[in-house]
């Protein structure tokens, strides 16, 4: 019998808080490496934001702060107005749908059903509702019928879609994805793009795939050296070649022009 947590009720966002508020976030790893030097960021409900930058910019570190896995370096994070701190973590983690880059890290349960059910089950929801959410989440990512499959039998494209389902079933406020298109062949990538386009969720997506950025995300945030160096309309940022080059990025239009 799952334990029912009475505190996990729907977050009240009638006050109109931004979905995500990051204020002056600092963080240094135990080995001394300073990963974040005062990062600030707001994401409004419904926005689809791309997070880009060279390796080591602090993107993954930032993402791990959004649901409290990393903390303690100064600054604060709020999800729909609720501060990310120890006593709120269970609720926060049901609101932030964090999908890791490697689907073999995200899919750790025996079957697909078990993985997609993991989130809602640990939220304390009754079994009937868990089952319903699993079916809905799988339908959303186009993987209905895969419930009894064992994860290791699936292709990477299928695994990536189910990874997204594992957080959709929690009904999150914001979807946070780390390199969703990495390792996908063109067809799987196309399929993922359609999926992300059709999902009516607030999103923050870290990626190296500049075509993906151009196609799906109206707003882009560029990070480098643990700081936000640019934050604005994608079309504007991607046409600033100097800016892109300074931070180790390639403009998609320039890449096309080289053909």
């Amino acid at each position: 019998m799952p334990i029912v947590h009475t505190e996990l009720t729907k977050l009240d966002n009638s006050a109109g808080f931004p979905t995500l508020q990051v204020k002056d976030l600092h963080f240094a790893y135990p080995d001394g490496h300073e990963a974040l030097h005062g990062v600030s960021l707001h994401v409004a409900p419904g926005e689809k934001v791309a997070l880009v930058g060279p390796n080591g910019a602090g993107k993954s570190t930032l993402m791990l702060h959004l649901n409290g896995i990393l903390s303690g370096g100064g600054g604060e994070v709020r999800v729909a107005g609720l501060k990310v701190e120890k006593q709120n973590l269970p609720l926060i983690r049901s609101k932030v749908g964090l999908v890791f880059q490697n689907p073999d890290d995200q899919l750790f349960s025996p079957t697909v059903f078990d993985d997609v059910a993991f989130g809602p089950l640990h939220m304390g929801l009754p079994e009937a509702e868990v089952r319903e959410r699993v079916m809905r989440a799988l339908a959303h990512v186009g993987m209905s019928g895969f419930e009894e499959r064992l994860s290791h039998h699936l292709s990477i494209g299928q695994k990536k879609r189910i990874s997204i389902a594992t957080v959709l079933s929690m009904d999150p406020e914001i979807l946070v994805l780390d390199e969703p298109s990495a390792g996908l062949d063109p067809r799987a990538r196309r399929s993922l793009i359609s999926l992300l386009r059709d999902l009516p969720l607030t999103m923050l997506v870290s990626t190296h795939d500049m075509f993906l950025v151009h196609e799906l995300f109206p707003r882009t945030v560029i990070m480098d050296g643990g700081e936000v160096v640019a934050d604005g309309e994608t079309a504007v940022l991607l046409s600033d070649d100097a800016l892109l080059e300074r931070h180790g990025l390639e403009s998609p239009t320039r890449m096309l022009a080289m053909l």
Binding site: L64, N67, I69, P90, R93, S94, V96, L98, F100, N102, D105, Q106, F108, F118, G119, H122, M123, T166, V167, M170
Partner: peptide, 13 residues
């Protein structure tokens, strides 16, 4: 470690 983080992210305590 990564799997542990993924578990935490989905509510494992």
């Amino acid at each position: 470690d990564r799997v542990y983080n993924a578990m935490l992210s989905r509510g494992y305590r």
